[in-house]
Design a protein around this nucleic acid. Structure first.
Lengths: 148, 148
DNA sequence: CGATAAGAGGTATTCTGAATGCATGTTATG
DNA sequence: CATAACATGCATTCAGAATACCTCTTATCG
């Protein structure tokens, strides 16, 4: 039971941008801050841009900005959108299911309800709920000061 | 976001045994009923035996029996025990975490809460809650009649 | 207008872990 | 003692994630 690193990184990028409201951030800068691959992070950012969470500008002086208010970025929706699929077990996908009892099985319903509990909890949070202790976070992330 | 097939199969085995209260079932029989690999299923059954959910007897006339009452088999606990780990994201495992902000990050708490919601929902169910429509299930599974 | 900084996007490779198969051992029973 | 069944370890395959690389486009600055 785990989320992909894409989802993990997406959340980290958004948190970074939220803490750095005062200017653009480059992918390189964020990759360095978290110690992860720039190439990998580019894919994540492209996805976030496509979903309308960030504005990415190219060229010299380009970089990333949040495209929404932190309060408008729901963590549950983000996870739903970033995860490649939410098929907890085989029978969640009718197309590929091989379990013969799937149409009559109660398990699917129970697992589905549990999954909804999971997502439901996340739907109760937005990006604005993260980043308490902003000073410590900015320090750990070696975040440039405003205007830098 | 998905559970391993081990967990999936474990649930299916228990459901099968619950429906077939009247006698022992062999691994081969269950593998055939679901159309899955016997070799694979053996590993799952070993695990279930080790965890005390089933009694497995060897030799001619051997087979599997539930070791507990269906009401005593909690689906949440089972999932916790069958899943190799519950590390939703990297930072859930302090040993291997590389994210520098982990100690100060709110994300971990939020995701942990969501995961608890997931497991909490499953903790509300036992094997006794599954297998409504037993007749249809037994038919689909080609389950031997009592005494067979 | 050209050098450069930055994101876009496709492709290829590596790596991990799950899924599966196979071979042999052990136990019980008829 | 033959056979049916579970036990166990090892090997292999496979899928998908993670990562790297390379080229293209866009924008800005000198």
């Amino acid at each position: 039971m785990h989320l992909t690193s894409h989802t993990d990184y997406a959340l980290r990028v958004l948190l970074y941008l939220r803490l750095r409201e005062d200017g653009k951030s480059t992918i390189q800068e964020i990759a360095d801050a978290y110690g992860i691959s720039k190439n990998h992070l580019m894919k994540v950012v492209q996805r976030l841009a496509g979903l309308g969470y960030v504005d990415a500008s190219r060229g010299r002086g380009g970089g990333l900005l949040l495209a929404k208010l932190p309060e408008e970025i729901n963590l549950g929706r983000l996870v739903e959108e970033m995860e490649p699929h939410l098929d907890l077990v085989e029978c969640f996908d009718m197309k590929t299911n091989t379990c013969p009892i799937a149409p009559v099985c109660d398990l699917k319903g129970v697992l589905g309800e549990a999954q909804q509990s999971f997502l439901g909890t996340l739907l109760g949070y937005t990006l604005a709920d993260l980043g308490t202790r902003p000073q410590r976070l900015r320090k750990i992330l070696k975040m440039p000061k405003a205007g830098g």
